[in-house]
């Protein structure tokens, strides 16, 4: 399964056939700090991802002088 991580942009190959929360745990990412996108759709940490899926993991945290 191909996973695109943002900020900084990079791609990694991980095992599918398991829930999103397990993928995030392997990446050391907290579920509440990212959007997980598959085929243009948001999915929750309980969703099962397959070996042929392509995911985007997009951080939601922004810093600096808002807005």
């Amino acid at each position: 399964m191909r996973v695109r991580l943002r900020n900084p942009d990079r791609e990694v190959e991980l095992d599918g056939g398991r829930p999103v929360r397990d993928v995030l745990r392997d990446l050391g990412v907290e579920a509440d700090t990212v959007l997980v996108i598959r085929d243009g759709e948001l999915i929750t940490r309980e969703a099962e991802v397959g070996q042929d899926d392509r995911l985007e993991i997009r951080p939601v945290i922004s810093g600096g002088a808002a807005p």
């Binding site: 943002r6 900020n7 997009r58 951080p59 922004s62 810093g63 600096g64």
Partner: peptide, 14 residues
């Protein structure tokens, strides 16, 4: 804009 501001590194708020 998904990218973070390139000058934000080390920001206290973050």
């Amino acid at each position: 804009v998904v990218e973070e501001c390139p000058l934000v590194e080390g920001n206290t708020q973050l």
